[in-house]
Design a binder for these strands. Sequence first.
DNA 1: GCAACGTGTTGATGAGGGTCATGTTCGTAG
DNA 2: CTACGAACATGACCCTCATCAACACGTTGC
Lengths: 193, 193
Amino acid sequence: MAMASILAGLKPVIRELAAGETLFASGDATRGFFLVRRGQIRLARFSASGRETLLFVAGPGERFAEASLFVETYHCDARAVAESSVACFPKSAALALLEGDAIARLELTADLARQVMELRSALTLRDVRSARERVLGYLVARTGVDGRTIAIGGPLKDIAAMIGLAPEVLYRTLAQLESERIIRRGNGIIELT
Amino acid sequence: MAMASILAGLKPVIRELAAGETLFASGDATRGFFLVRRGQIRLARFSASGRETLLFVAGPGERFAEASLFVETYHCDARAVAESSVACFPKSAALALLEGDAIARLELTADLARQVMELRSALTLRDVRSARERVLGYLVARTGVDGRTIAIGGPLKDIAAMIGLAPEVLYRTLAQLESERIIRRGNGIIELT
DNA sequence: GCAACGTGTTGATGAGGGTCATGTTCGTAG
DNA sequence: CTACGAACATGACCCTCATCAACACGTTGC
């Protein structure tokens, strides 16, 4: 991951969380940003009326609350869905690194810019109503340099969640595309024809 | 807008585009990032098979291709949907400013972080299947400091597009919420009760 | 004044994906 | 080797949202 060399310059504090435990709450003073090592952290916001808005569910390898580096208090609640382990990168050290190290600075900015691009792509993909077209759009966007093959890392149901489809619908759609010879599947690989 | 003071340090090149005109194409050397002044710019990617993936449609006041500052070539096509005017902020000047000016640097990074947060919120909102809950989630997320009122800028159909609903569905949902006394509407304002 | 246009609004309809149920395959722990 | 669970797969049903249609309303143009 691009952030590795940045993170290497910081001393994260490892924090273990039980299922349901709160990492931080809305209004708390920001301590820094986090990286999920194990488990899942759920970021949500509660409105005045008590209604909950789910913002993000961070899984292993994912960072969250990066934007907290630039604000004084957290604007959402972070709670562990399951028993989890997170690395906490303190705000002061991260900002100091951002001030002093030109490489780290460019890297963080570039990484954020890349995230913006990816998120925009993901968001636009959701505008595609048809499951068939959405799946095809996802596959096309994820083709490697040859423009034909897609490596499947992890279970299909995760992909389904990522593109906003029920797992069954993704299974069905892939099966249909395969029967129409539009894709070929095998061994963690999908190939467009 | 947060970027205003950054942008002030650069000398944008104003470019007028006719409807359908191409601003840049995939593979072109990156010139910088852009700000839409008037019209709409459509960012899309074409796969090897000719299939198109829509990435983003930037409207007035929106920037795009910020990530191009950190890569050598554009990874998508930018075409004007309608007759448009864009400001082009040259890559070299933006990067130099990012190197030299600590304030501008923090501002750009903070702005990108904020965008990441917003995009994540928008993406998560799409996971809400029910139109009713999605609209409520959007409203709650957009409440001002009082936690009750939402200012409506622009037509409702734009909001519908933003949250991924057909305009009719949004009209209906708002009407229903109003009839249930959950919201009140009037004069470009929606109030939660 | 009227026509043209876009937004907002509501009704009727249908297709498409969600959900539930059931079964199969595969990997892994024991 | 077996047992168990998770992912994968597929069938059936249903509900919801997209779509089409018709219309009201305000604005702009001539």
